[in-house]
Simulated scan of single mutants.
Amino acid sequence: MELPSICKLCFAIFILNASLLFLAAAATPPSDSNLFREYIGAEFNNVKFSDVPVNSNVDFHFILSFAIDYDTSSSTSPTNGKFNIFWDKQNLSPSQVSSIKSENSNVKVALSLGGDSVNGESAYFNPSSVDSWVSNAVSSLTSIIKEYNLDGIDIDYEHFKSDPDTFAECIGKLIKTLKENGVIKFASIAPFDDEVVQNHYMTLWKSYGSLIDYVNFQFYAYDKGTTVDEFIGYFNTQSSNYNGGKVLVSFISDGSGGLSPDGGFFTACSTLKSQQKLHGIFVWSADDSKANGFKYEKQSQALLAIPH
């Protein structure tokens, strides 16, 4: 029996809508809810990759801290994108990167740029110009990344002698170029709740958010003694600020700020996991966790490894 034309049209629209819904679902990447990340090497506590327990059921990222575009001499002068290594390279060498990755197929290693300080003074983002900084940064970081066989970068500048637009263009073009050149597989940013910091990172996000894979939001920069409800409120606020981004939750090993592991951090994580909002956990830092035997790293990874 011949369908009336109006029915044919309705049927065609139904098929088209169903196809679009299927394609949208297929294009949506799965949540990295078993991602665990840990900064390492900034405090020269002789911590090694092999000291840190790695659960085979999580995706594990070590983040070397830090590469900084400053001179390695005592003068602490900025070098306009020419990055040098400021982590504990004695214990965290290229051969040790190779070993930890070959022994654990789920481990990747990244490096973080900037950080809070260099030789006891604030480490500033201080480019001479966008083009010169990007050119120097691409060249110097490509060299370090290839030497160490690294997989990604993290942006952790916390002090600025540039406006937000300049920061956004420098960092955005750096990430774009390194990805297009096949030098890195992923990139993250590490903002915290400070007006100047947020202005810079949210400007970057607005222009280049599609290139940024993870937001390592420093929730431990909130006041010590943060409650579970406050923490979840902060998480929802930052998820809105970095709309569409994978905002990771975090704690600081020494318990000096934010919601501590003993104060309800894992309760908050379980709540977010039940809401399918837990994109991963990161820790600052392995250097401090060494003293307590990495017990919270073990607990974090065990929680992340639970199927949802």
Rank of each mutant, 00 (worst) to 15 (best):
E2L: 08
S5G: 00
I6A: 13
K8R: 15
F11Q: 13
F14V: 12
I15F: 12
L16S: 10
S19Q: 06
L21E: 07
L23K: 13
A26K: 15
A27S: 12
T28N: 04
T28A: 13
S33T: 11
N34S: 15
L35N: 11
I40H: 09
I40C: 09
E43Q: 14
E43C: 07
F44S: 10
N46P: 00
N46K: 14
V47H: 12
K48H: 13
K48V: 07
S50I: 09
N55I: 05
S56T: 10
N57E: 13
D59Q: 14
F60P: 08
I68F: 03
I68C: 00
Y70R: 11
S73E: 08
S74G: 11
N80K: 03
N80V: 06
K82D: 10
K82Q: 10
I85W: 01
W87S: 09
D88H: 12
N91T: 06
L92M: 07
S93Y: 13
S93K: 10
V97R: 00
S99Y: 07
S102W: 02
N104C: 08
V107L: 09
K108L: 09
L111W: 05
L111Q: 10
S112Q: 08
L113A: 06
S122G: 04
F125K: 02
N126M: 02
S128H: 04
V130F: 00
D131S: 15
W133F: 13
T142Q: 10
S143K: 11
I144F: 01
I145Q: 08
K146W: 02
E147P: 01
E147F: 00
D151S: 11
G152Q: 04
D154R: 03
D156Y: 04
D156G: 08
Y157I: 04
K161M: 01
K161F: 00
D165M: 10
D165T: 11
A168W: 02
E169F: 05
L174S: 03
I175D: 04
L178T: 06
E180H: 01
V183F: 01
F186S: 11
S188D: 09
F192I: 02
E195R: 03
V196W: 00
Q198R: 05
Y201G: 04
M202W: 02
M202V: 07
M202T: 15
W205N: 01
Y208N: 09
Y208L: 11
G209V: 05
G209E: 03
S210Y: 12
I212D: 03
Y214G: 04
N216G: 03
Q218M: 14
Y220R: 07
A221G: 00
G225K: 03
T227M: 06
T227Q: 05
V228D: 01
D229Q: 01
D229T: 05
Y234S: 06
F235N: 05
N236G: 07
S239V: 02
N243T: 03
K246N: 14
K246V: 02
K246L: 05
S250A: 15
S253Y: 12
G255Y: 02
S256P: 03
G257W: 08
L259A: 09
F266Y: 08
A268N: 01
C269G: 04
L272K: 04
S274W: 05
Q275K: 14
Q275E: 15
L278H: 08
H279R: 12
I281C: 08
F282S: 13
F282H: 13
W284E: 10
W284Q: 15
W284Y: 15
S289C: 12
N292A: 11
N292Y: 07
Y296E: 06
Y296M: 02
S300F: 09
H308I: 10
